[in-house]
Amino acid sequence: MTNFDPALAPAAGGGTVPTALGPPEPAIRVDQVTRRYGRGRSAVDALRGVSVDLPTGSFTAIMGPSGSGKSTLLQCAAGLDRPTSGRVLLGADDLTTMSESRLTRLRRDRIGFVFQSFNLIPALTARQNITLPLRLAGRRADRAWLTELVERVGLAQRIGHRPTEMSGGQQQRVAIARALITRPAVVFGDEPTGALDLATGKEILTLLREVVDTLGQTLVMVTHDPVAASYADRVLFLADGSIVEGMDGPTADAVAARLTRLGG
């Protein structure tokens, strides 16, 4: 089974889209990545030679049945896990050859994360949680950028509140602002609406869509929810550790139908 590379997909209506400058450089390039757990007969390949370019300024959703490798792909692409073989490039930097200390600095400075469980520090205010990555790096917050972020995520009236004084949706908005405060090259989301009710989840997805459209942010999200995936520019479907299909301009119904065929 071959891997699907959305960079090679034909344009709608057939043919290719001509451009004088060529396609933009990908924010993340995953090149023949395999991730094997265990040894010998008990070894399991969570990823099997996956290759894909994740375009700069795009919103990509990763989906597939349980055990398909979607979380492993996100972890390898984000530098949270090391591939058994292959490469992961963030711009010109090869994450797979970096030392742990350099990789830690890169994740802190150039990659943002939004998780299902928010991962906020209860003793800190919203402002302190948002600026924590900068404080850990010994950097001061750009006040204008912080103010813009707080307004964009709708927290202007909650900036002095602690997580226990905020709703789940507000806590996730803090987490999104925290992910963006360093102006990262890529933001990775792991089921970012999984702990939220339907209405709040849609608000968060709309916010993520706006972050891509207005800030040019690159966003990669693992989700099991076809509605969440419909907010993305494209969906990559995994099965048995391989990318088996890509879908541009996804709708919830089309995504759900494809997942059904995959057994998701």
Rank of each mutant, 00 (worst) to 15 (best):
E148T: 15
V33L: 13
E210V: 03
L236W: 09
K202F: 03
Y37E: 06
L196E: 00
V52K: 00
R48D: 14
T96I: 14
R158A: 12
G154P: 04
S230I: 11
I111V: 15
R140F: 04
P65S: 12
I204P: 00
D213I: 06
D190N: 02
P133W: 06
A144Y: 09
D233N: 15
R234V: 09
A229S: 10
L21W: 11
S167C: 07
R39K: 15
I121P: 02
Q172E: 05
G22R: 12
V244I: 13
R183P: 00
I130R: 04
L8R: 14
I176D: 00
R107A: 05
Q157G: 07
G112N: 02
D5P: 06
A77R: 01
P122K: 03
A123G: 01
R140C: 06
N3Y: 06
V244W: 08
G40F: 05
L207H: 07
D190L: 02
L54Y: 00
P122E: 05
D109L: 09
V88R: 03
V52Y: 00
P250H: 06
W145Q: 10
S51G: 15
D81T: 15
S101E: 14
A229E: 08
R87S: 13
L73Y: 01
A239M: 07
D93W: 04
G138V: 10
P10E: 11
W145M: 09
E151P: 01
P250A: 08
A156C: 07
A78W: 02
G15I: 12
L54M: 10
L106V: 14
I159N: 02
D248T: 13
D93Y: 06
T251M: 11
G69K: 01
V222N: 01
V17Y: 10
